[in-house]
Amino acid sequence: MSMNINSSAQRFAAEGPTLAKLAWRRADVEADESWRIPITPEVLDEYQAFLAGAGDPAALIETAERADLHLPHLAHLAERLREKLFGRFGFALLTGLDERGFSEQELRLFYVLTSLHLGELLTPYNRTHDVYDRGYDYRSSDVSVSKTRVRAPFHTDSTSKRVFPNVFGLLCVRPAKEGGRNLLVSACQVYRQLAEQSPEHLPSLFKDHYRNTVTPGDEETPIRDNAYPIFTWDVFAAGPTLRYLRHWIETAYAKVGESVDARDAAAFDRLDAVMEDEENVFGLDLAAGEAIFINNAVVAHNRTEFTDHPEPGRHRLLVRAWLRVPDGL
């Protein structure tokens, strides 16, 4: 993949109206809940009728294909989702799936079918990946944040140069006893704030940086070959894209025996500070049966630390899917 760093920097500088359209702060999201999409009775009725003749939901989660499905109401719902994903806020929350008493496997299947109507399911972690605390700490071992309960830093999904989900989803099967709140921030707002307040840091964000090879399938990829900028335009997705998780950058540099340049570290500090600006951060708690889909190019996310219920089978469980969704509407 050839990356014209100067071209991306020039596009960001020249595309003020596009960035302004996609930029938001917490107050904007709180004032306009168009990102919240209730699942209509027609969609639920259609899905229940599908289940009646579909067979084992667990098997269909792994085998269902879009071409074999005739679910027009769900297809319409997916189009509404796509409009939100590539619209101003870059995310959408599906609500109302808990109204019919679906089993866990039936919830998972609905989520997979919705994902198939949106685009292609990417499978480095299989079609879906269970997000729960496995007792790890990503800060001391090469495991993804999804396998821990500690507070996550703001980031976008995937460290891989070859695999980039431009959309990902999270289905909540069980919330935590306490914590685990999802935090979102607009990458375009972050860029605009940096350009206005700290333009001296932008060159560091448009240069290549090593990324640790923790995405399944990248085990044999040399870290020096897994390098790309934090901000790009028309490279990994159409238009502006943020790709960032500082920890995996710093561990990658350490593995190749190098240190992050002091100027780059200062740029990362400033980037982190803008993403943590409380005026920029929108928080959202997922209830059981709710699913959020996020444009991974223009929205960075985070999660607060959480505490699980002590009873077996009540631990916090989310189901993640990585998607490649056509960019155009």
Rank of each mutant, 00 (worst) to 15 (best):
300 A>T: 09
16 G>T: 11
308 D>E: 02
207 K>V: 04
211 R>K: 13
241 T>S: 14
110 F>N: 00
158 S>F: 02
103 S>G: 05
100 R>P: 04
200 E>L: 13
228 Y>H: 09
98 D>V: 07
116 L>T: 03
5 I>A: 14
233 W>I: 04
225 D>P: 08
99 E>N: 11
280 N>W: 04
148 T>K: 15
54 A>W: 13
328 G>K: 02
209 H>W: 07
97 L>T: 12
259 S>A: 03
236 F>L: 09
26 R>L: 02
130 D>C: 09
133 D>R: 06
72 P>R: 12
125 Y>F: 13
326 P>Y: 10
302 N>T: 02
307 T>K: 10
146 S>R: 00
168 F>D: 06
283 G>Q: 11
21 K>C: 08
181 R>Q: 05
274 V>G: 02
93 L>G: 07
12 F>A: 14
293 F>I: 00
18 T>I: 13
183 L>W: 08
19 L>V: 14
82 R>C: 06
250 E>F: 12
145 V>E: 04
280 N>S: 02
130 D>L: 08
184 L>I: 09
196 E>G: 14
196 E>I: 15
214 V>F: 02
170 L>F: 15
132 Y>F: 11
159 T>K: 15
93 L>C: 10
42 E>T: 08
210 Y>T: 02
192 R>K: 10
302 N>L: 05
314 R>C: 05
20 A>F: 12
77 L>H: 03
242 L>H: 07
276 E>S: 02
189 Q>S: 12
11 R>C: 08
97 L>W: 11
185 V>I: 14
107 L>Q: 00
12 F>M: 13
240 P>M: 07
58 A>V: 01
139 R>A: 14
43 V>R: 08
104 E>D: 00
282 F>P: 01
158 S>D: 01
92 A>G: 10
123 T>G: 06
151 R>P: 11
326 P>E: 08
122 L>P: 03
166 N>F: 01
307 T>P: 03
288 A>T: 12
310 P>L: 02
115 S>Y: 03
226 N>Y: 13
308 D>S: 05
91 F>M: 12
239 G>R: 13
18 T>W: 07
302 N>E: 04
252 A>W: 00
208 D>H: 15
78 A>G: 03
87 G>I: 10
100 R>F: 02
169 G>T: 15
245 L>V: 07
241 T>C: 14
175 P>K: 15
36 R>H: 12
324 R>T: 05
1 M>F: 06
149 R>H: 06
145 V>Q: 03
230 I>H: 03
138 Y>N: 06
240 P>S: 09
312 P>S: 08
272 D>N: 13
170 L>R: 07
102 F>M: 14
135 G>T: 13
114 T>S: 09
49 A>W: 09
303 R>Q: 08
233 W>N: 10
233 W>Q: 04
61 I>M: 13
97 L>Q: 01
146 S>T: 11
320 R>A: 11
280 N>H: 00
62 E>K: 12
44 L>C: 04
258 E>Q: 01
104 E>R: 00
261 D>E: 06
59 A>H: 11
306 F>W: 00
176 A>M: 15
191 Y>M: 05
266 A>M: 10
36 R>C: 11
184 L>D: 02
50 F>V: 03
74 L>V: 09
180 G>D: 09
204 S>P: 10
239 G>Y: 04
200 E>C: 09
161 K>D: 13
82 R>V: 07
46 E>Y: 12
263 R>I: 01
219 E>K: 12
265 A>V: 03
21 K>A: 15
71 L>T: 01
